[in-house]
Design a protein around this nucleic acid. Structure first.
Lengths: 297, 297
DNA sequence: ATCTTTCATTAGCGATGCTGATGCACATGG
DNA sequence: CCATGTGCATCAGCATCGCTAATGAAAGAT
């Protein structure tokens, strides 16, 4: 029973952690509960440590470490498979776009319309996903292009999960702004320093604004703790929350302007921009190339 | 014979590509030639493509892709194992340092001396490696700390191979400078733009100066092609080559000053610095913590 | 206290991956 | 042109592995 960190073992390990149960993981994977139990036992024997706490089921300290490695590993495995599958595949006229919520702009929809007009018989598919999930979709071949957004220094690429070679290209850049209530003491300022706002009240709206996690890593601060969470995708909803004082939010300047009861103030320091990038495999299909040039040109 | 991209298969695949021979790879891995042949056949069957060209043995297009994925994958596997091994290991008083050539400075050696003085019975080991190799050593547990250097924007971390969570900390930063012959037309300038020098003649001295590859990715240019290569680790040797017109080199400003027959001119744009960072696991040993605080404080 | 749920253990069987022997293709030297 | 050598492919055979099914044990729930 000594299989040297087989991906299968890692996969069931992750499934166990996710399901919080051996038997549920077994069902999800199409195995027997016994098999799952043996998988975990094999991993634990191989690594010489307990990885899973039982009853209730959960990761031990070592287990948490292993999950952090196992997820990217499994992703990379799928990415490798997809990367090679792309090579030998004469692609049908399909264009599957995975985009982060904010990136679904008129610019994108119109570019898609032009691509469709220029490509008879094209099957279009647009799916809105989280940023990392969109990149994962491209890596595993589930999508042909991803559009992701985020904050970064003007000359830096967005930090993306590194699971293999990909091409990225910026298609839109806007100054980063803070959305705050119109009567907020800072609302009349011409610009703000992001670092001064780390301890403010924030609304975490990952699908509508810049997720607080990105601000945290951009400023390398421990602040930006969510005072409330907004799960919607509507900017006006977020605007209303901000207007009534539930907290601040960071958005690209154009998206932050003109919302009732709010003011949008640019970030002066650190030098950050909100950028949208297209992400696609290094061997893009013709449809992807068409979309990229439509977006870019 | 359908093992779903088993790491063993990937490992022998990489070995085959490296050795350029099935039988040599088999010998290196302690397998039979037959086993290696079956491994490759299994991979090719699984991925549905030929991966290895035979006679002579070499990667196909798909094979090259696979190598690009397989190497980081195998590294990550080792990193995961090492990461967990560290947790359950009461460490001996050992301090293994892997450092890039440039980073072996008086500051480092003196810090090591202070750590040794403060830690009776400490076993010290210093190994000079390439930058990536030094990081790999830390990831796989072969070393406890790495010191690596490189160029980056002032607020950016150095781009390092992403094979798991690590802690990095800057310990030295210096302006980036170009080393050129004293009689060079640009030698009297107060500062230079790096982009203007992409097409100059360059000496690639990866162990003594900034590797040209790093300049290329920092400026995102295709230039900086090596006009000659210098494999030594002595700055004066590099200085002599530059002085007699073999090409330019990029170095941290302090290292570039005072070399006979040369001039050192700062880089003005893009905003880049030469930085040395310590890299260590997120759970550092006490010796590592001591070294870091000596270097930092 | 009994029942239920959930993970661990064991036996047994089919599948897998290894070795060793042999086959086949290509290159080289007489 | 054939003989020989080198190196990968293939095959048979065997030991091992990983799965399922059945059963055991232990922690909650009722």
């Amino acid at each position: 029973m000594l299989m040297h960190m087989d991906p299968h073992l890692l996969r069931t390990f992750v499934a166990v952690i996710e399901h919080g149960s051996f038997s549920a993981a077994a069902q999800g994977l199409g195995y027997t509960q016994s098999a799952v139990s043996q998988h975990i036992a094999a991993l634990e024997a191989d690594l010489g440590t307990r990885l899973v706490e039982r009853r209730p089921v959960g990761p031990t300290a070592a287990g948490e470490r292993l999950v952090e490695h196992a997820r990217p590993l499994l992703l990379r495995l799928d990415a490798a498979r997809a990367d090679i599958a792309r090579l030998r595949q004469v692609r049908p006229a399909r264009l599957a776009v995975a985009c982060a919520p904010i990136t679904l702009t008129p610019a994108l929809t119109m570019a898609l319309a032009r691509v469709r007009a220029a490509t008879p018989g094209l099957t279009l598919a647009v799916e809105v996903r989280g940023r990392d999930e969109a990149v994962r979709a491209v890596l595993t071949g589930a999508a042909d292009v991803a559009l992701v957004d985020g904050v970064a220094a003007p000359s830096d690429p967005l930090p993306l999960p590194d699971a293999g070679p990909m091409s990225t290209l910026a298609v839109a850049e806007a100054p980063l702004a803070i959305l705050l209530p119109a009567d907020h003491p800072l609302a009349r300022r011409p610009s703000l320093r992001l670092g001064d706002l780390a301890d403010a009240h924030w609304v975490d709206a990952p699908d509508t604004a810049v997720p607080l996690g990105q601000l945290r890593s951009a400023v390398r601060s421990d602040g930006f703790t969510p005072h409330m969470t907004y799960d919607g995708t509507d900017v006006r909803g977020l605007g209303a929350l901000v207007a009534s004082g539930h907290g601040l939010a960071a958005l690209p300047l154009p998206a932050a302007t003109g919302l009732a009861g709010t003011a949008a103030v640019r970030i002066r320091a650190p030098r950050l921009v909100h950028r949208t990038e297209v992400v696609h495999p290094r061997t893009p299909t013709s449809a992807v190339r068409a979309l990229v040039s439509e977006l870019n040109g």
